[in-house]
Simulated scan of single mutants.
Amino acid sequence: MTAPQEASDTECRRVVARGVVQGVGFREACVQRAHALRITGWVRNRLDGSVEAVIQGPPATLDLMCEWLRNGVPGARVDALQVQPLARPCRNLGSFERRPTA
């Protein structure tokens, strides 16, 4: 069992992916990758055709997730990836889940 992460080791980021990101399994791939990286947060489609995610974890792991979001989703084409740090403290997210479209 791993020790709980210290708050200083955890960051939150809001990520918005634009391009061909809906209808290609982007959210499900995101959930699987987040579980593999052991980060928490959520992902959802947006009515404007983008995909939005909030990711939480160690900064280096979040960097890996952001790089994967740019290039790693089969069938997707990410034309723009906006990454915005969220102010601390951010609410502790216990898992990574897919949320309904907003």
Rank of each mutant, 00 (worst) to 15 (best):
V43Y: 05
Q84K: 07
A34L: 08
R44S: 13
Q56G: 05
V24K: 01
P89L: 11
F26E: 01
M1C: 09
R98E: 15
A53Q: 03
R88Y: 04
A36T: 12
R13H: 13
V43H: 03
P58A: 15
L64I: 10
R99M: 04
V83T: 15
V20Q: 14
G19Y: 05
L37Y: 05
R46P: 01
R98N: 08
R99K: 13
V21I: 03
L69D: 02
V83Q: 13
I55E: 07
S8D: 12
R13M: 14
R14M: 12
R18G: 06
R27S: 02
Q32G: 06
R18K: 12
N45C: 05
R38K: 14
Q5Y: 07
E6Y: 08
V73M: 09
G19N: 08
M65Q: 03
T40L: 11
V24S: 03
V54S: 04
A7V: 04
L64W: 01
R77I: 12
V24E: 06
P100D: 13
R70C: 14
C66W: 02
T61F: 07
T10L: 13
A102H: 03
G23Y: 07
R33G: 08
T2Y: 09
I39M: 05
N71G: 00
V20S: 10
A36K: 12
L62H: 05
L37V: 07
R46S: 04
T61R: 05
A53G: 01
F96L: 03
G41N: 08
A87E: 15
C90K: 02
E6G: 10
H35N: 10
G25S: 02
V78P: 09
G72Q: 04
S50K: 00
T10Q: 06
E6L: 15
A60R: 08
G25E: 02
M1D: 09
D63N: 10
N45F: 01
R46N: 09
L62V: 08
G57T: 02
G23S: 11
P4K: 06
R46I: 01
I55G: 12
N92D: 14
V31L: 06
Q5H: 06
P100S: 14
A29D: 07
I55Y: 10
V24G: 04
